[in-house]
Every structure is written in C-alpha cells, then in structure tokens.
C-alpha cells in the first residue's frame, strides 16, 4: 500500500522494494542487492524532495 501511495504522489515505485532473505541465504542477498542497485542506477537520483542543507 505504501508503494501505491508513493506511486500516487509521483515517486517512481521502483525505489521501494521488498524481499524476504534468510540469514543463511547469502547468495540470494547478494543477488537482491545487486539487482536493486542496478535498477536504481538506471533510474538515477531523486531530486524532487531533497532535504535542504542546514
């Protein structure tokens, strides 16, 4: 639902991903993280709601 809400408010839903990885599944963990970082690099940084530097 959060994903749908973010999509509704104009954030690319690819930025929020969820997966279940057990502590014993080292290979799966590596795969998931590599996959996500690859996808995120394709989308590029989100500049719309940057926190102002204080």
């Amino acid at each position: 639902m959060l994903r749908k809400l973010l999509e509704f408010s104009g954030i690319n839903p690819q930025r929020l991903q969820m997966s279940w990885v057990s502590a014993s599944e080292g290979k799966k963990f590596a795969d998931v993280i590599t996959g996500i970082t690859k996808e995120l690099k394709e989308i590029g940084p989100q500049n719309a709601y940057l926190r102002e530097a204080v």
């Binding site: 959060l2 809400l5 973010l6 709601y49 926190r51 204080v54």
Partner: peptide, 23 residues
C-alpha cells in the same frame, strides 16, 4: 522529520500521516 517547513519535510509529514490512516 525535522521541524523546518519545507517541501521535503512536508512531503514526509503528509506521507506519514496518510499512511497511518491506511485501511
């Protein structure tokens, strides 16, 4: 979220508020 009133904090506030009302 910070106390400052700017777009990024306001967005965060509204998303938190809305999501607490999810369902």
């Amino acid at each position: 979220l910070r106390r400052s009133v700017d777009t990024s904090e306001n967005f965060m506030f509204q998303i938190i508020r809305t999501f607490h009302l999810a369902g």
